[in-house]
């Protein structure tokens, strides 16, 4: 999706609830808080929303269909709603597609996740192929460990580097879910899935994000941030069918977004990295070096909620552009085992 003759897509409002380790509110209460903040930010009411795209996963909500619980609080009664069973950034991208298709003028994109409800990694076993993978007990955590092992091959300093990286990211965040730890403490933390230690994983909790998108022509009085490009792409599901040491899906998603690998204009990158080693996969696939700030607020290591991550990264990019900290930024979301699927959006100041 690239800018062209079709309407541009402005980010008119953003709202967030959490992330916190365990939100005592129900899912609809969390979602409503995020939606009300986004609507207020966009200076509209529910009557100003024409269509809704939500992102949530039945498995993680212990409920099918997980969007049924939030129909009212996202204002989807008597309006077209689309539900994405993937990362929240994809909800925003699909909303942007509706706007660019001319289907409507204002879309609300919402994502929620509540990891405190159930043991998250154990649940992911049920997201694996039931014939060859599930019976062996292979879940997303096993896939992350295999990926980290593949990435560390012939690289003796990998785990120390990941510990440093996790410590740096956690220290930059507001420690909403877990206290920051030193690299030495992370290396001494319990094994999660070798070679990964517990401190090398972003702390999971509860959260919701909402974004108001508007078809726009640009210019004075317009919302100051637009989506300049977006794309998403998938890898095969089975870890054995993939080169785990590369995020090829992300490479292709970036190309679909019109992003050149050596894009000099990016002033910020906000990846969805649940594990420290994923940041190296992200940098390699997206062609992001050390010149642009990456996760200045700690990224997901400040705490995140499953499938909310990518939409929270979009909000982080939009806020940085509004604050004048960047003029062009890359938001990233991922879902599936070991980064099977990726979505990216390029945000620009008008």
């Amino acid at each position: 999706m690239r800018a062209g003759d079709r309407p541009a897509v402005a980010i008119a409002g953003v709202g967030q609830a959490g992330p916190v380790a365990a939100d005592s509110r129900s899912i609809p209460e969390m979602v409503l808080a995020a939606v009300e903040e986004a609507l207020a930010d966009a200076a509209i009411g529910f009557d100003g929303v024409e269509a809704v795209v939500t992102a949530s996963v039945d498995l993680f909500d212990g409920l099918t269909a997980s969007n049924v619980a939030i129909t009212e609080v996202v204002g989807a009664v008597m309006r077209p709603e689309t539900r994405i069973a993937g990362d929240g950034l994809c909800a925003a991208i699909h909303g942007a597609c509706e706007l660019r298709a001319g289907a409507c003028e204002t879309v609300l994109a919402v994502a929620h996740g509540k990891a405190s409800m159930a043991p998250h990694w154990a649940l992911t076993e049920w997201a694996m192929d039931p014939v060859f993978l599930q019976p062996l007990g292979i879940d997303f955590l096993v896939c992350a460990g295999l990926q980290a092992c593949a990435l560390a091959q012939g690289d003796g300093g990998a785990t120390e580097r990941w510990a440093e990286l996790a410590a740096r990211r956690a220290a930059a965040g507001d420690a909403a879910i877990a206290p920051p730890r030193s690299a030495a403490e992370i290396l001494a933390s319990p094994v999660l899935a070798s070679p990964l230690r517990r401190g090398m994983a972003a702390p999971l909790g509860d959260g919701a994000c909402a974004v108001v998108l508007r078809a726009a022509a640009g210019g004075p009085g317009e919302a100051p941030v637009r989506i300049a490009g977006a794309g998403w792409d998938l890898e095969p599901h089975s870890p054995g069918e993939r080169d785990l040491a590369r995020w090829h899906g992300l490479e292709r998603a970036c190309a679909r977004a019109g992003l050149d690998r050596t894009d000099p204009g990016l002033e910020l990158a906000e990846p969805s990295c649940l594990f420290a080693h994923e940041e190296e996969l992200f940098r390699a696939a997206a062609g992001i070096g050390e010149e642009a700030p990456l996760s200045p607020g700690g990224g997901l290591f400040a705490g995140t909620a499953p499938h909310v991550a990518g939409l929270s990264r979009l909000i982080a990019c939009a806020r940085a552009i509004r604050d004048g900290a960047a003029r062009r930024a890359l938001a990233h979301g991922a879902w599936g085992p070991a980064g099977q699927a990726h979505a990216v959006a390029v945000l620009e100041a008008w």
Binding site: V142, G145, L146, P190, V191, A193, S194, P239, L244
Partner: peptide, 15 residues
């Protein structure tokens, strides 16, 4: 053996 990982109380897995 292409890659392996070990999890506490769950044993080791391999590609």
């Amino acid at each position: 053996l292409l890659a392996w990982t070990e999890l506490p109380d769950r044993g080791a897995f391999a590609l």
